[in-house]
Nucleic acid binder design. Structure first.
Lengths: 260, 260
DNA sequence: ACAATCGAACAAAAAAATTGTATCATATAA
DNA sequence: TTATATGATACAATTTTTTTGTTCGATTGT
């Protein structure tokens, strides 16, 4: 086992159980205390958990959204499956908007080989990944909306992106979302985000939500739009069947990706 | 000598002399032919030179601007010195615009420890570096202008950044430039860039050009502005003394950084 | 106070990268 | 075309970097 794998596992467990002790790590991975401490200190520096005496705890205050990097670890394989499935909805020549998010980020991997795409995003991570992965092989036009960068999020907010989205029209918008519920519709953690997401929905011909199964039945802080404001939802097969059923009855297509 | 240093030296020499043979490399660095070949192949893959039978040649069609990555290698130590010197002009609380460029990129390193900065840029590299290096320690507000990303340049052009710069006003703008000449003033390689640079100059209270000594006396393709449109020029001590003298006579302050 | 935990420093071990040599394939020039 | 130089692959040797463990004095929480 490589050290990076161990780090990932540790973060996953801390996120799952809320805490993990030095002793736990020693036992589970057969390493010395010093190594366990070094691991936790490194992960703490990366902001992925909070170091405490004797171990580490998750660093999420309940009502706060975890940082982008932390969220990347949650349900990663599911997000990858969703991203690839969502990418299948994109055809050569499409103009697509990719919302900020760890799930939308995975869509990029599925764009290899597609021709003549226009991609609009306000997410620095997505932009960087597109440049790294695509701009060499594929002929892709990449547009960044600009805006004020939120340091932990690497997304841009404020009047600039709103203004840009207002003037642009895309074939398809892929929207990440904090919660999907029958009662409260689509909800997000931050008010700033809701505004951008609304603009996105407005300026896209086809509106597609990407969200892993854990988002279903969740209501987070700020309301974005009713369920029926979007055309499709791409999720994985861990999404609760009854909720999916109800959503379909409301006329929203739900696409399930196979996650390992 | 580390392999990276050797690579840098090789690129520098190829850029300087236009070509370099396998034998040259073996002799100069006391390495085997195999190593020399591996070096050239690696650098070719990175697009920094063009591999030919028996050696390598520079891969610049004379009238074209080399790619961002290639330019990073040219006069790197001088650019670092200039960047640090230029950063001394920035005070706590300033709002600064950082133009696209390999020299402006080096300003970021000098911003450590400064408080309450607002940085505006349309360069993806600069944005990424600011996020990596500063956003943790420093309290910096980072604004990206947005725009269409030019894949090789990682800069943004088009109506979006122009519009954004139009609405923003900064204390100081640091402008990279392709050529500085007494007859033709400030010139650039691409027309697209000139427009943005003009906007930058217009929206800044203090206009500062950063350019290494090799840019002096050069005229590139497109005219940006007359020399007197800017307040200061930060360069290194390799800048030709007579030209510097003449520029100073025109009322533009020239600051010389000590390069190794 | 006192046992557990921590971090610094050093040494050991493992992993990764760099480099060289030998060998055979390929390209260039006469 | 042949002869010679150059190239590429594979493997081994080397160096460098990363990771890990141990010891020991300092610090922490109960």
């Amino acid at each position: 086992m490589k050290s990076v794998e161990r780090h990932n596992k540790i973060v996953e467990i801390v996120l799952e159980n809320g805490r993990m002790s030095i002793a736990d790590i020693c036992k589970m991975f057969q390493v010395s205390e010093m190594t366990a401490r070094r691991d936790l200190n490194a992960l703490d520096r990366q902001g992925l958990l909070r170091r405490i005496h004797g171990g580490a705890i998750a660093n999420l205050g309940r009502s706060y959204e975890p940082s982008f990097q932390t969220r990347t670890f949650k349900n990663q394989s599911k997000k990858m499956a969703i991203g690839l499935k969502a990418a299948e909805l994109i055809y050569d020549g499409d103009s697509v908007a990719l919302d900020v998010g760890t799930t939308t980020l995975e869509i990029v991997a599925g764009l290899r080989g597609k021709r003549n795409l226009t991609i609009i995003t306000s997410c620095l991570q997505i932009a960087t990944r597109v440049v790294d992965q695509l701009s060499l092989d594929t002929d892709v036009r990449l547009v960044l909306t600009g805006g004020i960068i939120r340091p932990r999020e690497l997304s841009m907010i404020g009047p600039i992106p709103e203004h840009v989205y207002q003037d642009l029209h895309v074939d398809k918008a892929f929207i990440g979302i904090g919660g999907i519920s029958l009662e409260d519709g689509l909800t997000e953690y931050n008010i700033e985000d809701t505004q951008i997401k609304r603009m996105l929905i407005r300026s896209a011909h086809e509106k597609i939500v990407v969200a892993d199964g854990s988002k279903f039945g969740m209501t987070t802080f700020a309301s974005v739009a009713p369920l029926t404001a979007v055309d499709k939802i791409v999720t994985d097969n861990s999404a609760p069947a009854e909720i999916v059923e109800q959503i379909r009855k409301q006329g929203v297509e739900v696409i399930l990706a196979d996650a390992d």
